[in-house]
Each structure stands twice: as structure tokens, then as C-alpha cells.
Design a protein around this nucleic acid. Structure first.
Lengths: 222, 222
DNA sequence: TTGCTTTACGCACACATGTGTGGTATACTC
DNA sequence: GAGTATACCACACATGTGTGCGTAAAGCAA
């Protein structure tokens, strides 16, 4: 079984996509069109742009018009290609200690995590993050269509802003909730991943609303 | 000046540093000099650059000359919020090292795990087990109704027998598969958790069949 | 006082970088 | 054969963006 993962990308496109994702990961900064071209021996920026357009069309990246290094990775999970190398030297294992919190309080200037219930230790590559992570115990089935069930743990990377479509934890009227984030002309739609539930519409000027962080992973025990 | 944590930064410098770190985190792209200025109502790029120079001098960031969005965060830990609470009794944390295997070969007397691709380290309480655990990368959607998606990791506790209804990994005709186990008068039904798929009926006398282990947990990264 | 640091403005310059247009060539499908 | 997608090159253009330089006010220590 070859290429079971990303059959919708051509070999070339996948290589370029992986390179972009790797650059973001390792240098914290997406490459420019010309840097991509240099990497792949493409002397023309037009060639690179053709590939970028293909990746945009297929939903792997997006670009912000006009701004430099404007590429955004939309499918970070698709970028993790198998290492393909049997590592002779088992690499150093970095672990993270992740507090599981029962309550998340949003207090200026930053997030205050209260009520630490347990601490999970986790392999860093499982929870790729440059910041601090914490975990929440999920209640309810509002994200069941995204494969997140009642009782699961989700891992949260604290951040105060999010992009359209991100799965986030937010404080709405004092209560923490997990939803998908869709801002639209001043208002915010929080979309549950559950056919049976309605989206929540929020006017930030009227309702207390604060993004706690982005969901970066989940775990379940049977 | 009243901060306890990073006394070497002024309030202003610290705010700017945090903003840069947050931008890298949330958008995957450092801000430009002008974007920083806009955020902090600095009408002159010169003002921003003064602060950046201070952050460089104090070792918090570095910049790559000439390239756009060239700021690199050197102290990601300093961008984090304070760790909330000195936890009174930090309990002992036991971790397990879990190999992720690409291939599972069933050979007596016990399981032989081949092709170790990576090693996950995991908190013991997350994967309660008295034996050895290993992990598999899930391919396909056969267990999607159980909330296990393509690309997820599942944790396996090796065992050669299972009980009715257990979710197991089994070798069928040389291929590893994840199904729910239902034995019935000499035959075995392997039930996928997916409406669209049919159960597999196996006659152990005719088909190679061996239980590898029981699924005890799962994990996903976004 | 002098000197140093921090904070801040204004502005011009050069290069970094995204974007558009127009080519060539190959392969595949209908 | 026409149409479409991929994979390249060459080049021009507008704008994004880092950098340099000068100015100035406020606070603090020697």
C-alpha cells in the first residue's frame, strides 16, 4: 500500500506541501514563493504559483493576498509523512506534562487555569506545540461528528485568537464550550459538530466571549 | 516596574514580545514591523525597531536581516503564562514508552512487533495496562461510528483471547484490522463500527486468524 | 551637570515578495 | 481533435517590508 494518505495530491504537490509545512514547523515562518522555487529548482515564480494554486484548490493551504509569507497550512495532519527511516538511534523523547483542568477561568490579563485534577504526561510529538498545553475532560456530544465523544480528553493550546474553522475552546457567558469557530462581519458563529444541535450566534458586544485556546489533539481510554 | 517574572524586560517590551509570540503561535507567521506598530499604536516603524533591538539585545528574539517577517522567538518559554498554581503535592508520574508499529506480526509464543516507527511516551493512567502496550496508526474508516477515525492512534494491549464485544486488533489473512469481536458457535464475526461496511465472517479452520490484542485507548492530533 | 536608557515620531531608500501575463511541453480524458 | 490538468520558463510590475538616519522628550544614576 503506497501513498494511502494523500492520493489527491500529485507527488510534486505533496513534496511542496510538506516542505511548506516543515518550514512553518521548524522556522516558525512560511517560505516565500521564491524560497520554494529555490528549494525545488524552479527558476520561475510562475511555476511555484501553479503548484500553490493547486494546493489551494485542493484545500491544503490558503494564502493571504498581498502579504509576504502569506501561506497558511490548512491540513497540518496531512503534513506528517511517515519517517520512512528505521531509526537506529532511538531519539530522545521529550515529554510534556499536561494539567487536566476542571474549570477554566478567563481572567485578565491571561488565562488562569484552576482546579487541576490530574496531570498527564505526553509525548511531545503527539502534541506538537511550542506553548503550554492543558487538557479538558469533554462533557456532552456537541462535537460527536468530529469524533469527539463524551468523556474524551481534548488538548488545548492557549491562544486568544483563532482562524475560521478552528476547533476552539471558548468562554461564553462564563461557561467553557468546545465548538468550531466561524467569525462573520462582527458576529461569531460557534458551530457544533452535531447534526442535532444548532449553532450558537454571538454578538461579542453583548455577550461575554473569549477564546481560550485551540484544540490540538484528543485522547480516549476504553 | 512590577513584574515578578521577566524583570529584564520593561512592560512595553514584554507586551510586544508576547504579541509576537502569540502571532507565531496562532497564525504561524511572525508579524511585520508595521503590523506590530499598528497593534501598539506606534505610527513610526522606527519606534517598533527600537523595541525590537531591545528584545534582540536581551536575547528574547532574533531577526534575520533583510527577510520579511524575519523575527524568531528565542524564548518560547518566556512567552508562556505563569504556571498558575504551585501544585502542592505533585504526584509521581509514571510514563510508558509505547512503540508505534507499522506492521504487526503474530509469531509464537508472543507478539513480535516489527517496524517500529516512533515511540510515544504516555502517562500510565491514560493507558492503564499491566502489560506491554503498543500503538497502531489507524487506516480507514471501519470504526468511525466508535469515534475512531482514519489517522488516529489506537493503543493495544497484547492478548490472544478476547471477550464478546471487545474492540480488538486481529490478523486476518496476514493483514491487521481493527474490529469488534463476536464469536459464535465456532465461527467469528468481526463487526466494523460503520453502517456502510459489512461484518466479516471467519471460519478459523479455513482462514488465518489471530487476535493481537485489545484496544485500550486512542489518541488523535489535529 | 553629563550620560544612558526608554519611548516615540517622520521619512526615504532598497530590496523582498506576491501577482499577472505569455509562452512551451506532456499526459490524460471525452 | 478539443479540453483540461500538470509542470515548467521568462519577465515586468506594484506593493510589502526591513533598514538607516535624524529628532525629541522623560526618567534615572553617577
Amino acid at each position: 500500500m503506497k501513498e494511502s494518505q494523500h492520493t489527491d495530491l500529485t507527488t510534486r504537490q505533496r513534496a511542496i506541501f510538506s516542505y511548506i509545512a516543515e518550514r512553518v514547523q521548524s522556522s516558525g515562518r512560511p517560505p516565500t514563493v521564491r524560497e520554494i522555487g529555490e528549494k525545488f529548482n524552479l527558476s520561475s515564480t510562475g511555476s511555484v504559483r501553479t503548484h500553490l494554486r493547486a494546493l489551494i484548490r485542493k484545500g491544503y493551504i490558503s494564502t493571504q493576498a498581498g502579504i509576504s509569507r502569506g501561506i497558511t497550512i490548512l491540513k497540518p495532519s496531512a503534513a506528517r509523512q511517515r519517517p520512512a527511516k528505521p531509526r537506529s538511534t532511538p531519539k530522545a523523547i521529550k515529554t510534556l506534562q499536561i494539567p487536566v483542568v476542571g474549570r477554566v477561568a478567563a481572567g485578565p490579563p491571561i488565562l488562569a487555569v484552576e482546579d487541576i485534577q490530574e496531570i498527564l504526561e505526553l509525548d511531545e510529538q503527539l502534541a506538537p506545540s511550542h506553548g503550554e498545553l492543558f487538557a479538558l475532560h469533554v462533557r456532552g456530544d456537541s462535537m460527536i461528528d468530529a469524533g469527539i465523544h463524551d468523556g474524551d480528553y481534548v488538548f488545548i493550546r492557549p491562544q486568544k485568537v483563532a482562524q475560521k474553522g478552528d476547533m476552539i475552546v471558548a468562554i461564553v457567558d462564563g461557561e467553557a464550550t468546545i465548538k468550531t469557530y466561524f467569525p462573520a462581519n462582527g458576529k461569531i458563529r460557534l458551530q457544533p459538530a452535531n447534526d442535532k444541535l444548532q449553532p450558537i450566534l454571538i454578538d461579542p458586544s453583548k455577550t461575554e466571549f473569549q477564546i481560550v485556546g485551540k484544540v490540538t489533539g484528543m485522547m480516549r481510554r476504553f
